[in-house]
Amino acid sequence: MKRRQVLGGMGAGVLVCLQPLPAWGQAWDQSGERLKEEQAQFEQLLAQHFEGRIPVEGNVSVNLPALAENGNSVALEVQADLPVGAARVVSIDVFAPMNPAPHIAQFLFGAGTGRAQVRTRMRLAADQTVRAVASFDNGRLMMGGAHIVVTEVACLDFLI
């Protein structure tokens, strides 16, 4: 009698514990929250830097490795191709919305640049989509981005 009660109690306990668990995929995927936060951050940055103008996706490519072992120095390449109607690229702004200082750099090009392509190395404080916004001489704004996962983050880990 007692053993049956104990077993029954355990079984009921297991069922009770299992109830609140959502589907496995749902519980694991918390990136919905982070994606929203990142998107909100990026929109705020656009409002700050471009007076509310929304860039159009295209013509700007951001090259990053898919995974960064160490966020302290990640190779970044940004390139902007001219859209129809524009004679040259004026500037490219690089944003990492989840970094403590999200505006990474602004690159300005002179008339004799020849190609609006810049390579540098940046710091990453979290997994995110790094975005580049190109500004053309006809006033147009276009953008591109690349997602990166960072194993060891920079900025927030203190070194020995």
Partner: peptide
């Protein structure tokens, strides 16, 4: 700058890695 003309200018923030590497193009 090439003489007085600007070729390339970069305004950097603290998100650029230490010992900064920058490469750009020039015609």
């Amino acid at each position: 700058r090439c003489g007085p003309d600007l070729v390339f200018k970069a305004l950097l923030n603290r998100g650029i890695a230490a010992n900064p590497y920058l490469s750009f193009f020039f015609e």
